[in-house]
Write a protein that binds this DNA or RNA. Structure first.
Lengths: 333, 333
DNA sequence: CTGAAAGCGCTTACAG
DNA sequence: CTGAAAGCGCTTACAG
């Protein structure tokens, strides 16, 4: 049924080896012979079987991508960046997720051992860093996206979390705020530490009062933003701004403030992190520290390709800049 | 380096064929022999090479998924449903997108010809239905997600677009609206036709006045929602409700109405379609016709698996129900 | 410049 | 119940 390299060789009157040579653009093939073979290929519509090529070469020209979930708001952007770069180089992307917990990871591990792909891009699912690190140690090229401040011993891409936090603080100072509150993400995330530190440092430099009691831990969910506002108000401490560690949390903060009768931005300014689609649609629209998700995907894919092509890649994280996007939640518009 | 079936056979003192038998759970292997082989497998951590298995069996246990873009708001949900089902059955998912146009499609076609996967799941990129249909005709199992009313000759999953439109009209009637306007999606989409007809029919049945001049074509973007409101107002015709064909458009409608000084829902009710994350976060929150995206992904993956496993699948579309989600944009809350 | 042969790591009749 | 052999469709030394 399917036309194979043997068919092409027969019709062109040459050996399979020669067909393989022109297929792979090796030099030292007679121009006429090559031409004839190309014609036969065109006539027959022959395309090499990726399975057979993979087996013979020992590589699949396929990259694995492991993500914790596909429904997070910014995952699609990262994925798009990854796929664009990889596809342009003729690589396929095998997608794995971890929504089914242990079982998912077991399946994934099987694919790894079966060497279904040549390299791995990963947005770290909770508590899998050791496993990923082990894969890397065993020789699988890996690039981590959004290192969450873990600074692993293999290549990764991240953003300027610290600068992002600082930019938020400076913006609040510049717009006349004095007593900021912070709703962080999960405290054990490296990025949370970085954002917190960057914010605190800049706040101090700008003369803002950052009361430790006004720093509340959240978990990156909208609900945690609402809950945090409850705590902040209950503390009795005055505050005129809230820096939330992601947009989802900020959205919860916005709602809770509204319900509590505090006006945004008049009484309280709110700043988020990420700049997901939602951020431009809250009421008021959210000022936020933008992370270039798509660019992160592109950068990670690029690093992995270099690695696969044999270029040595530095384990130092590749850092992309965050940018402050000012909207109505921090300044009247 | 890597342990192969030959290594396992040697260590167990049997032939590769016998190892292969226990690997694939064939009957007729002596219990003791099988046990011994299993032990060797466990000791050595042997996992069959997916490349080699694929070549020998002629199938890869991999499914292709082609989407127009990964950054659309609801794509992630569909993808999650697809991956969950496929992964549970040990299938891998190869992801392809069409953001780079012709070039993307050329790459994709190569993968198809190289039989990189056993079957294909597709959310149709514009103008590719003929191509997809051809692949199906040539023998590639295909399931289309969100048929957009094209009703192809191969299996597909869709939602009750017509009922969804009808539900929107009935809800407006039930909440005391009289003169609805409609902002459709691209008119050549089948789903747009269905939503429009369902809405018009129910509107008539409920005694709503649907002025043809108040039916404006949009293109599923937020901007088209804003533009449509401009046209509606310019028409001079009174309207007290807007049914938009997706949530993004509805979001644009909401903003434009706000800017024009019309209150929602007091002066105008707004209803969207999809129920993307954004819908719950607009001001006011959006009443919308929910499409079960994740379930569509699950259903499509299930159909494809049946097909791959040899169960005959009906080309009649598999239809999932839409549900009306009522929020503040249509009723004061 | 080109071909014959071995090899990639499995599965699957075919014999026994 | 089990093994030897061929085959899946390529690539890659090795010779010439």
């Amino acid at each position: 049924m399917r036309v194979t390299i043997a068919d092409v060789a027969r019709r062109a009157g040459v050996s399979k080896a020669t067909v393989s040579r022109v297929l792979n653009g090796k030099a030292d093939v007679d121009a006429d012979t090559a031409q004839r073979i190309r014609e036969v290929i065109a006539e027959t519509g022959y395309v090499p079987s990726s399975r057979a090529v993979g087996l013979a070469r020992g590589r699949t020209r396929t990259v694995g991508m492991l993500v914790p979930s596909l429904t997070w708001p910014w995952i699609g952007d990262v994925l798009q960046g990854v796929v664009d770069v990889l596809e342009a180089d003729g690589y396929g992307v095998l997608l794995y997720t971890c929504t089914r917990g242990e079982e998912s990871l077991r399946r994934f591990a099987e694919q790894v051992s079966g060497s279904a792909f040549d390299g791995l891009l990963v947005i770290e699912p909770e508590n899998t860093l050791d496993y990923i690190a082990e894969l890397h140690r065993k020789g699988l090229p890996v690039v981590l996206i959004d290192d969450r401040g873990h600074h692993p011993e293999f290549p990764s891409v991240a953003t300027t979390n610290r600068d992002g936090g600082a930019a938020a603080a400076r913006h609040l100072a510049a717009t006349g705020r004095h007593r900021p509150a912070v709703v962080t993400g999960l405290a054990h995330f490296g990025c949370v530490r970085d954002r917190t530190e960057g914010f605190a440092e800049a706040a101090a430099a700008e003369g803002l009062l950052l009361d430790p009691q006004l720093v509340v831990e959240g978990d990156f969910t909208e609900e945690s933003g609402r809950a945090a506002v409850g705590k902040l108000i209950a503390s009795g401490k005055p505050f005129d701004a809230v820096f939330a560690h992601n947009d989802l949390t900020a959205s919860g903060v916005l709602r809770a403030l509204h319900e509590a009768g505090r006006r945004v931005p008049e009484d309280v300014a709110v700043i988020g992190f990420d700049d997901i689609q939602l951020a431009a649609h809250t009421e008021p629209a959210l000022t936020t520290v933008r992370q270039p998700m798509r660019e992160m995907g592109e950068a990670a894919a690029g690093l992995l390709l270099s690695h696969l092509e044999g270029v040595p890649v530095s384990p130092a994280p590749f850092i992309l800049p965050t940018t402050l996007v000012v909207r109505g939640s921090s300044t009247p518009q």
